[in-house]
Simulated assay, not measured.
Amino acid sequence: MENDEKPRGLNRRIALLIDADNVSHAKIAVMLAELSKYGTANIRRAYGDWAKPALKGWTDKLHDFAIRPIQQFSYSTGKNATDIALVIDAMELLYTQKPDAFCIASSDGDFTPLVMQLKANGHEVYGFGERKTPAPFVNACTTFLYLDSLEDPSQPASQSEAPEAPAAPKAKAKSKPSAGKATEKTLAQNTKLVTILRGAVEASAREDGWALMSAAGSAAKRQAPIDPRNYGVKNFTALFTGTGLFEILKGENGQSYVADKRNKDRAPRPGG
C-alpha cells in the first residue's frame, strides 16, 4: 500500500474478512478505498454476534457497503467463536471461490497462523488493525496498515490542512524544536526501520551506488510489511528523507533516486 508504486492487477478479486469485534465500523469506507488500489473486494464479510450492543453501530455500515454479516454466537464464556468462523471461511474461500488475495481486518494476533497459511498458498494478505495489534500478525501480512493512519476523505480537513494560524512571536518560535528535526531523530533511532531501508537500498542499488526510489520501496516491502503512512509520512521518498540517513536526488529522466550516505563510493549523481 505504497504511493510510490503503481497499483497492479486492478481486476484482482479480494476477499475482505472483518473481525467486527476488533475493528471500528467507522473505518470501512477508507479500508475499501485503500483496497481499491489493488483490486476489487467482491467478497465482503463481517463476523460477530450481532445481538451484542457493542456492534450496533455496524448495522447501517453493512447495508451501505454491501457487507455480508456472519452471525456467530458465543458458545462458551471467554471463548471467541468469531475467530474460528472467520478462519473456517477463509480456508473454504481459498479452495472454492479462489480469490486472488485476502484482507484480514482485525487487531487479534490469533489470526497470524491463518495469514501465514494463505501466504504459503501464494496469496497476498493485506491487514488492517489498531496500534495494539501484536507484531507477529503485523509482520506476517504482505502489507499492514494501522487504521489511524488512514485518512477519511469524508471528514473535515485535518489541522495540518487547515488555514495557518498567525505566526507566533519569533522569540517563542525559537524556543521550540522544529517538527521536522523531531521526526528525523525519531525515525533515525528506529533501528529496525533503518536496517530495512538500508538493506533495500543495497539490494536495489546500481553500480553507481544509487537505487531507483520505486525499486528501493519495493525491496523494503519484500522484507517487511512497511507502509510509510504508519510512520507519519505519505510515501517512501518522505520516509527515506525523514531519517536523514539517505540522499535523494532526481535523475535526468525525472525519476527519484536514493543512496545511503554511508556509501562514500557512490557517484555524485545518479547516472540513469
Score class of each variant (00 low, 15 high):
V194M: 12
E161G: 01
G127K: 01
R12K: 13
A220R: 10
L187N: 07
S204W: 04
T186A: 13
V87N: 08
T191L: 12
P270V: 08
V125G: 09
S175E: 15
T241L: 10
F128N: 04
G48Y: 07
S158F: 01
T186F: 00
Q223N: 11
K79V: 09
A29G: 03
W210T: 03
P156K: 04
P99I: 05
A165G: 03
Q223M: 11
T243E: 01
N121H: 14
A259E: 04
K261Q: 15
I196H: 12
K170M: 14
K61Y: 00
K27E: 12
S214K: 15
M91G: 11
S36Y: 00
K185P: 01
A179P: 01
E247K: 12
Q159C: 05
G217C: 05
E184V: 01
P177K: 02
G254K: 09
P163R: 03
A20I: 09
S24L: 04
I248R: 14
P228K: 08
T241Q: 15
E34Y: 02
P153A: 11
D60E: 14
D83S: 10
R229Q: 07
T241N: 15
A171Q: 12
Y75S: 11
R262V: 06
S154K: 13
V23Y: 05
Q117K: 14
N263Q: 13
D64H: 09
K79C: 05
M31C: 02
P166I: 08
S178T: 15
T191G: 08
K221E: 11
A54M: 13
C141R: 09
Y126P: 00
T112D: 05
N230I: 03
M213S: 10
A267S: 15
Q72H: 07
A216K: 03
A29C: 00
A168P: 01
V194W: 10
A90W: 00
A26C: 06
S24A: 12
Y38R: 15
D110T: 12
L239A: 03
K174F: 01
A238D: 15
K174S: 07
D265A: 15
L239F: 02
D83F: 01
N22S: 11
D49Y: 08
A179K: 13
S204I: 08
A105N: 09
T112A: 14
L94C: 07
M213Q: 07
G244N: 07
R12N: 14
D89T: 12
E252I: 15
Q117H: 13
T142W: 06
G244K: 10
K98L: 02
I14A: 00
L239Q: 02
T237D: 00
A120K: 09
N22T: 04
P169W: 02
L249G: 05
A216T: 08
P134D: 14
S149H: 03
T142A: 04
A182C: 08
H123N: 15
G48K: 05
S160E: 15
A216Q: 01
G244M: 06
P156C: 07
P99D: 03
V87K: 11
A140W: 02
K176A: 10
A66T: 10
S149V: 04
I226K: 09
K234R: 15
I88A: 08
S204N: 06
D21R: 02
D148Q: 09
T142L: 04
G232S: 05
G254E: 08
D19N: 09
E202P: 00
L10T: 10
A66W: 07
T96Q: 13
V201C: 06
A157F: 08
